[in-house]
């Protein structure tokens, strides 16, 4: 907590210095937007260092955790600098609207990403074994195969279609791809309970072996639901990056255009 307070205080101090310096620039009858604009641009370049650090892990460039921390707090500084640069007002030209929109997208996705990276691991850590996102389809396929085999064996052994019907009508669709993503993200367990009730309702009509088959199927359904939980949250951890990173590159490209346009149409007095 002390570290968070220190970093937040340092960021606040940097923002205050920027505000004071922009004021001083303004007092000198110069356009402060050139000053805070270039500070903003420099800070955005600093933000790219995290990406460089990540792509060159073998170089002794310090710990990625420190760079990420710097990335997050510099991000907050950039939001303040951007607000100062825009004069706390909305844009008034199409190009500026586009730059503004992408910047907001980067800022919001980054802030949400920081929150998700902080909050989701704790949720995942208490729900079964840690699983890599890329391995989830393989586990899901294995579970689906096992349930299908159990259903087929049950039909061959008992001649009853009860379990195979349940499999065809309800379980196959449930097992073949991720389900109930929103429910998992909201922490709602209702869909799993519904399936389990359907499985449990079949129990009275089976003998001991059939009951054992139902128990095995139920275990696998619960395991699949666990996979869906992991998939939903791990997916969320990845999706925000798919927004944040392309939007970041768009902002960089648009910033370059913005600078060119500003200097192309400037009066020559910064």
């Amino acid at each position: 907590m002390r570290g968070i307070i220190q970093n937040a205080a340092a960021t606040l101090f940097a923002v205050m210095v920027l505000y004071w310096a922009a004021g001083a620039y303004d007092a000198a009858l110069r356009d402060p937007r050139y000053f805070d604009g270039w500070v903003l641009c420099a800070a955005m370049i600093v933000q790219l260092v995290l990406h460089i650090r990540k792509t060159l892990p073998a170089l002794p460039l310090g710990r990625a955790a420190s760079w990420l921390r710097a990335h997050i707090y510099t991000g907050y500084f950039i939001i303040a600098a951007f607000a100062l640069h825009t004069g706390f007002s909305l844009p008034d030209a199409p190009l500026e609207w586009i730059v503004w929109g992408f910047f907001i997208l980067v800022a919001v996705s980054g802030t949400i990403g920081a929150y998700l990276s902080w909050s989701i691991p704790e949720k995942l850590s208490y729900d079964g074994e840690p699983i890599t996102f890329e391995r989830i389809p393989a586990f899901r396929f294995a579970l689906a195969q096992e349930v299908e085999t159990l259903a087929m064996q049950s039909m061959e052994r008992t001649g009853s279609l009860a379990i195979s019907d349940l499999y065809v009508d309800r379980l196959r669709a449930f097992l073949e791809r991720p389900r109930n993503v929103l429910a998992h993200l909201r922490g709602v367990r209702r869909p799993l309970q519904g399936l389990c009730v359907e499985i449990d309702n079949l129990e009275p009509v089976f003998d001991t072996a059939g009951k054992e088959t139902l128990r095995l199927i139920r275990d696998r359904v619960v395991a699949k639901d666990g996979l869906d939980f992991q998939h939903a949250h791990l997916g969320l951890l990845q999706i925000w990056l798919f927004v944040h990173i392309p939007a970041t590159y768009s902002v960089i490209a648009l910033t370059i255009i913005h600078i060119l346009v500003v200097y192309a149409f400037s009066s020559g007095v910064p």
């Binding site: 990540k54 060159l56 892990p57 073998a58 990625a64 990276s117 989701i120 691991p121 704790e122 995942l124 850590s125 840690p130 699983i131 890599t132 996102f133 791990l234 951890l237």
Partner: peptide, 20 residues
């Protein structure tokens, strides 16, 4: 030792190991 309460499964550790 990996702290699951902080690990986001990004696999940066594995990638860094592979890169070196």
């Amino acid at each position: 030792v990996i702290d699951r309460d902080r690990c986001v499964n990004c696999d940066d550790c594995v990638r860094a190991c592979a890169a070196t």
